[in-house]
């Protein structure tokens, strides 16, 4: 989870999700960095529209805006 949170944090901070970025954040959280995992995540997220992936969750779960005016 930590790595995904790190990715989300970077994304929402307006940064590109890179191996180094993730490593920095993970380290700042007091953890040792697992390079393989950071690599794998970055590669898996390549071409992924994070905003969309995130908002899908938001969209599916909650109340569709539709209602109120």
């Amino acid at each position: 989870m930590e790595y995904v949170y790190a990715a989300l944090l970077l994304h929402s901070a307006g940064k590109k999700v890179t191996e180094e970025g993730i490593a920095d954040v993970i380290k700042a959280a007091g953890l040792e960095v697992d390079v393989v995992r950071a690599k794998a995540l970055v590669s898996a997220l390549e071409g992924v529209n994070i905003e969309e992936a995130i908002s899908k969750a938001a969209f599916a779960a909650p109340a569709p805006t539709a209602a109120p005016a």
Binding site: M1, V4, Y5, A7, L8, L41, A44, L45, V48, I50, A53, I54, K56, A57, A58, A61
Partner: peptide, 10 residues
Amino acid sequence: TQMLSLAQVA
């Protein structure tokens, strides 16, 4: 939830 859905995509 956002983390989970991003994780799923990844």
